[in-house]
Nucleic acid binder design. Sequence first.
DNA 1: GTCCAGGGCCGTT
DNA 2: AACGGCCATGGA
Length: 201
Amino acid sequence: MEIFNIYKKLFKRYGSQNWWPIAYNKSNPAFEISVGAILTQNTAWKNVQKTLACLHRNELLNPKAIIKCPLHILHKCLRSSGYYRQKSKKLKIFCNWLNNNYDGKMLKFFRKTMKAARKELLDLWGIGPETADSILLYAGGKTIFVIDVYTKRLCEKFEVKFKEYEQYQKFFESRLPKSAKIFNEYHALIVASGKDGHRYI
DNA sequence: GTCCAGGGCCGTT
DNA sequence: AACGGCCATGGA
């Protein structure tokens, strides 16, 4: 089945997913999205929501506050997201980078070309390809396709298998309209479908 | 009790 | 380049 047809099929079944879900900073969501993208690494979103709520409660959903926050306080909020020591460190590194280079503003960062922006994110400790691309697509509106474990399982169903992340990415991007909106919706639909074990594909 | 969640880093081969 | 171990909580 064609990749774009799978998208249409999933859309008909699951409808618009409205990603990325924003709970708090709706007027300036890019930072919250980036934090969520780091927190949800190999972790159920439900557990991340508790952390976001705690961060918001403690007025920690901004770069400067996280930079200043003592580690043991950050640990408390992050515990429910798992890997809380690593992820606390990741948030600190991300916030320091953002504050030092872009005045704490994601919008300044997103002025860069996508390739330069992607490389810069990947050079940060704690941000790999999926997290970088989630930030670029969902926080920055860049036209880049996010690959995750559900995407690879979907590919397996059609006996499509690669070694590298970027190969999966090219596979999808080359078979779809070059549209951030479609990339956005498709990845979210793949996650929705993956949670059902891709049973309707 | 086991397995998995909207991964990524690091050391060894 | 490839592979395994590690990180850690919470729900099914």
